[in-house]
Each structure stands twice: as structure tokens, then as C-alpha cells.
Design a protein around this nucleic acid. Structure first.
Length: 275
DNA sequence: CTTAACGCCTGAAGGC
DNA sequence: TGCCTTCAGGCGTTAA
């Protein structure tokens, strides 16, 4: 499931491959990922446009065209972009929802098994509501203990659930929120407004540390995340608690990792290390 | 204002 | 073997 490091990996890959490429035509195999526009309108919106650059904010991918228009895309659970050079054919056609064909013969596929992923077109003068609603991005912005302390002031939800709120921190998902809390030695069940500024400071440091480490490993391929060249990430080999329930904690070597449910999502923790 | 619940989806996994 | 149920979960919307 793509979180900030996985989206960063995808965006890096896209910037290496599709810049200055012009869309010749597209093939919409499934219209459901396309928001706001009909397939016909989306087709006319993108045809003839040239990619200027691609940026990331939180978990969103922002494709910018040279004329100022753009597409905001979210991979949700299983969305992925696959770039193919002109010599390569589409080998695995399963779950392909959309194909961009470029004038040089190369192509970009949008695949999504579960069709939660989205592509939303935006005109140059339109406000992008997805990005406006995001909180601070831990890689692009400097998050201060004061910022989180203030945001958590009236929040009575557990700190783990708070970390998943994209209007607070943009880009954290289940895996990295869980791992960061382990490194910070904070119990995920502690109510957000009970965390003090010292703890927030430690947590921010761990969040930034773990995200940068994961970016350097091209992300985590736990369900089926793939880079645009269809390669997996390597960070799943470095996880400390996520998915490790029943295994002995690698830090204290004494206590078993447990799995709990918070707001419907799985959380993993070491009851000994995270008080 | 905050928080919970539901819907979107399909494939893997488990129970019988 | 095969059918049924449950689970996975980010985010938008709606309800409380």
C-alpha cells in the first residue's frame, strides 16, 4: 500500500521517464478511476498535452502539463504506474485501467486491482482541493513539536489514529505510523492530547528518519507496491513491528509483538518497549 | 467542532 | 474440491 516513500519512488521514476513526452492518445479500459470528467472529456483534456514535471505532496501525485493544467492522482491501495519503452509490449495486462500513448512510441500504464485509485484533472486556474486539505509533509516541510502539540490539543483519539490523519501530517500511512511509534517508544493507544512536546519531538525525528530510510530503499512492497519499472521496494525487510505479531521484539529480545485494532486498522506494537 | 460508520473494490485466505 | 465468509485499508461522504 503506497505511502509517502512509495509515492516518492514512483514520482522519481516518472520524472526520469515521461518528462517532455507528449500524449498522442489514450485508452480508457475502465472509467472508474477517472474523477470529475467523462471518459470523452478526459480524453480531450489530455490529448496533445506535454508533461512538464511531476511532484509529490503527501500521498498525492501531481502531474503538471506545460500549459499549466494538471492531473492529481492517488494510488490508494493497489494503484500503480508502469512505464514501457516503445520496444516493450504489455506482458501482464491484468488490472490495466488506463494507457497513455506518447508520440515517441512509449507508454504509461495505470494499473489498479481494486480500483480505489484516482486520476482527477485540473485546469491551470483551479484550486486543487486534495492538496489544499493536506497537512504538513514531513519531507517537504519542517514539522515542529509545537505544530503537532497544537493540532492534538483537542483530539481524543489514539496517537496512532491521529498520525494517520492526512490533514495533520500528509503522507503517513499504516506501516510508517506504526514503525515510527515503535522507534519513538510510544504506545499507539495513548490519547493524542496526552503526548508532550518532548515526545512529539522524538516522534517527528523518528518519522523523518524512517521515511528517508524507506525512500532510500525504494519503499515497502508489502501488499504489492511496484515502482514504475515493475520492481519491488526493499524496505519490507527492515520492518521492526509491522506484520510481526507473534515474533519476539528485535529491540528487547524478550517480548512478543502484538497486533491490535484501532479505528478498524491493524496496529503492531511491543508492549515492553512501547509504554 | 470531533468521531464513527459506511462505501468503494477484488483477490487471498480460512472455515466447513 | 468448492462454496461461503472475512479480511485487507486510504479516503470521501454522511451521520451522529
Amino acid at each position: 500500500m503506497p505511502e509517502l516513500p512509495e509515492v516518492e519512488t514512483v514520482v522519481n521514476g516518472l520524472n526520469k521517464t515521461i518528462l517532455n513526452k507528449t500524449i498522442k492518445n489514450i485508452n480508457i479500459l475502465d472509467k472508474r478511476p477517472i474523477k470529475k470528467y467523462t471518459p470523452q472529456n478526459f480524453t480531450s483534456f489530455v490529448t496533445g498535452k506535454t508533461f512538464k514535471n511531476i511532484i509529490r505532496f503527501g500521498k498525492y501525485i501531481h502531474f503538471k502539463f506545460k500549459n499549466g493544467d494538471s492531473i492529481v492522482s492517488h494510488l490508494r491501495m493497489t494503484g500503480k504506474y508502469i512505464f514501457l519503452q516503445n520496444t516493450k509490449n504489455i506482458i501482464n495486462t491484468s488490472h490495466v485501467r488506463l494507457i497513455f500513448y506518447f508520440t515517441d512510441g512509449s507508454k504509461l500504464l495505470f494499473k489498479d486491482q481494486r480500483i480505489f485509485g484516482t486520476l482527477t484533472p485540473y485546469l491551470a486556474n483551479e484550486c486543487i482541493k486534495e492538496i489544499e486539505k493536506n497537512g504538513l509533509d514531513p519531507i517537504l516541510n519542517k514539522i515542529t513539536p509545537h505544530y503537532l502539540f497544537k493540532k492534538a490539543k483537542n483530539r481524543t483519539i489514539p496517537v496512532k489514529v491521529f498520525l494517520l490523519d492526512q490533514s495533520v501530517i500528509a503522507g503517513l500511512g499504516n506501516i510508517y505510523a506504526t514503525e515510527a511509534l515503535f522507534y519513538a517508544k510510544i504506545n499507539p493507544q495513548i490519547i493524542a492530547n496526552k503526548i508532550n512536546k518532548t515526545q512529539w519531538k522524538i516522534l517527528i525525528n523518528k518519522i523523518v528518519f524512517i521515511l528517508n530510510l524507506a525512500i532510500s530503499k525504494n519503499g515497502t512492497s508489502i501488499s504489492d507496491f511496484k515502482n514504475i519499472d515493475d520492481k519491488s521496494g526493499e524496505f519490507q525487510n527492515m520492518l521492526m513491528v509491522y506484520g510481526k505479531n507473534g515474533q519476539i521484539c528485535k529491540k528487547c529480545n524478550s517480548t512478543s509483538i502484538i497486533k491490535i485494532k484501532q479505528s478498524g486498522r491493524s496496529t503492531f506494537l511491543c508492549p515492553h518497549c512501547q509504554k
